[in-house]
Amino acid sequence: MSAESAVATPEELKARIEAGIPGAAATVTGDGHHFNAVITASAFRGLSRIAQHRLVYEVFGAEIGGRIHALSIQTQVGEPA
């Protein structure tokens, strides 16, 4: 968890998204403050875009807008990995 106090990295975000969302595979790019995540997950099936994005935001909680200044999200429904 100590890594979370340092500057956020795309690798950290990818790992946390994939750990936090069932069946998720993420591609994350970013500079430590602004990130872009493309996420395919089986958990997105049947959910509205709003609900899909909320799942991703929930992984990071209050870090969004703080430590993670901005996170752009594109979601796709995927098959279980």
Binding site: R49, I50, H53, R54, Y57, A62, I64, G65, A70, L71, S72, I73, Q74
Partner: peptide, 23 residues
Amino acid sequence: NWPTVPQLFVNGELVGGCDIVTE
């Protein structure tokens, strides 16, 4: 229940932020 700004509402419902509006 949405952490970021901008937020677009249409007819009282949250549509989403920049990413969803763009899509």
